[in-house]
Nucleic acid binder design. Structure first.
Length: 496
RNA sequence: GGCGGCAUACCCAAGUGGUUAAGGGAGAGGUUUGCAAAACCUCCACUCCCCGGUUCGAAUCCGGGUGCCGCCUCCA
């Protein structure tokens, strides 16, 4: 039996015990991208949050069908493509490819299914057909409109009543300002598909209803997306789906909070403050971006301070990696409890913390996916490890003491996609990305380090210190350890 | 204007009725180090936007106020 969990449902405005429609299975539909431009850090929030959520559910033995769509037929795509003199679908394909590159470099899972509007025309038209047949929709001048008045529950998700529900689409004879387009009659120069109502293309909302129905059925477990989609998009999805399928739509609506910039505005293409994932990825490791996104609760707004945010996340990530590496270096074969009683309170503390770690992580994540609390537990464990590591005998005998902690930290990689690399691979990625940003190359740094090592061996401290100061000026920090001199790139300040 | 949400230290942030209000970052002092870095230790909110109320007891519930944000137009 998969583990039970609780999740906030935007529809009921309450945290609810999750009850699957099918035992052991979760059907999840997440609104994906309209592919007319590159994915920015704000989009990454939704992508990372749901990626981590899916990972966690699978880790907890749920069988998850994860659907995330592409909107590849849309006004903005047509407009951009036309400016560029490219076919709209080719333009969309270009950004689908780039999206896939971005997701892959961020280390995100592929959804189980990635339906597209352009290849879902049959199910879209079938759903519109059912709505027309049942008088939930009507045709006018080659457009098909959803008749909002025909659905008494309209507004139940967004909490709006009639006054707040006017829809601005105004072309082609709709009956009420609240009605919205299911099918838009073709206009010159636009892509179109044949339909019973004449050539045209789908309205914005119908696609998700149709694709969710096609991939998950009329009723499914969880529908996710950004908080900004609640109205009108998700409200309209409910109306179309419940009227067209004569069934309740998603049981749970899960909305992620938005990224906001210091002025307080959310990040958005229309706000002119977007920061592309691929730009962030040239300077920071993927996991720093993940940690940044997961460090507060998924429903809260998250402040974006540019490089400062990622530098902060990178420092935190390095702390976790370092602590894990320290623990991995411990040896010893004795019984853990015997070692603990021999080595004292700090040993006993890590042992205890390690043993309860997984349980506490599960408790945090089962409670409305509280990644912030979960990460808090991880830092607490890291400190306990480091504290224990200050004891002289820890390295030789501490292995059994930190074994439960190390096993527990696996949760982070399996469930959240963090700490999934070796420390060395992680540091290599940091170096590879940040050397470029600092305008350095590794060979030059290594040469200086070798020079300094020679000076140190000669106990020529002033020469050694001069070299260290020079490296420091470059943004390189040296770390003299028992095993030799390591170097790292400074995380703070001087960011290119 | 309507609907929804948020307000916890210098910054990020957990906690939503009951031990000393998690955790991280920054800062100060100390230990360690050839000197550093990292790490560790100590300090850093008698208090949770404000005012009332409920309660034996509230950051947590209720009412009012203030501020901020999202949506109402495309939006993760």
């Amino acid at each position: 039996m998969p583990a039970p969990f609780r999740i906030y449902n935007s529809l009921s405005r309450n945290v609810e015990d999750f009850e699957p429609l099918r035992p052991g299975h979760v059907g999840l539909y997440v609104c994906g991208m309209t592919v007319y431009d590159d994915c920015h850090v704000g989009h990454a929030r939704a992508m990372v949050v749901f990626d981590a959520f899916v990972r966690y559910l699978r880790y907890r033995a749920w069988d998850v069908t994860f659907v995330r769509n592409f909107t590849d037929v849309d006004d903005k795509i047509i407009a951009r493509a036309s400016e560029a003199g490219v076919e709209p679908l080719a333009w969309a394909q270009r950004y689908i490819d780039r999206f896939h590159e971005d997701m892959s470099s961020l280390g995100l899972l592929q959804p189980s299914v990635e339906p597209r509007v352009s290849t879902s025309m049959e199910s879209i038209q079938a759903l519109i057909g059912r709505l027309v047949a049942d008088d939930h929709a009507y045709e006018a001048d080659g457009n098909v409109w959803f008749d909002v008045a025909s659905f008494s529950e309209y507004g139940k998700l967004s909490g709006r009543d009639e006054e707040g529900l006017s829809n601005p689409d105004s072309f082609g004879g709709k009956r009420s300002p609240r009605d919205f387009a299911l099918w838009k009659a073709v206009k010159p120069g636009e892509p179109s598909w044949e339909s019973p109502w004449g050539p045209g293309r789908p309205g914005w909302h119908i696609e998700c209803s149709a694709m969710a129905h096609e991939t998950l059925g009329a009723t499914f477990d969880i529908h996710g997306g950004g908080l900004d989609l609640v109205f009108p998009h998700h409200e309209n999805e409910i109306a179309q789906s419940e009227c067209g399928n004569h069934a309740h739509y998603a049981k749970i609506w899960m909305h992620n909070g938005l990224l906001v910039v210091p002025g307080g505005r959310k990040m958005g293409k229309s706000e002119g403050n977007m920061f592309a994932i691929r730009d962030a990825m040239t300077r920071f490791p993927a996991e720093a971006i993940r940690l940044y996104q997961l460090q507060n609760h998924y429903r809260s707004p998250l402040l974006w301070l540019g490089n400062e945010s990622l530098t902060d996340a990178l420092a935190k990530l390095a702390r976790l990696y370092d602590a894990r590496e320290v623990a991995e270096s411990f040896g010893g074969q004795q019984d853990a409890d015997e070692v603990a009683s021999a080595l004292g309170d700090d040993a006993a503390a890590v042992l205890e913390l390690g043993r309860s770690f997984v349980e506490r992580m599960h408790a945090a994540l089962d409670d409305d996916f509280n990644t912030s609390l979960a990460l808090g537990h991880a830092f607490e464990l890291a400190r306990a490890i480091n504290r224990f590591a200050t004891h002289k005998k820890a390295r030789k005998r501490g292995g059994p003491i930190v074994a439960p902690a190390l096993a527990g930290l696996q949760v982070l990689s399996e469930a959240l996609g963090l700490l999934s690399l070796t420390t060395e691979a992680f540091q290599d990625e940091v170096k590879a990305k940040r050397l470029g940003a600092l305008g350095l190359d590794a060979a030059a740094v290594e040469a200086k380090i070798a020079e300094r090592t020679a000076a140190r061996q000669a106990k020529d401290w002033s020469a050694s210190d001069a070299i260290r100061d020079e490296l420091s000026g470059w943004g390189v920090e040296v770390r003299d350890t028992a095993a030799g001199t390591e170097w790292r790139l400074r995380l703070s300040d001087g960011d290119a």
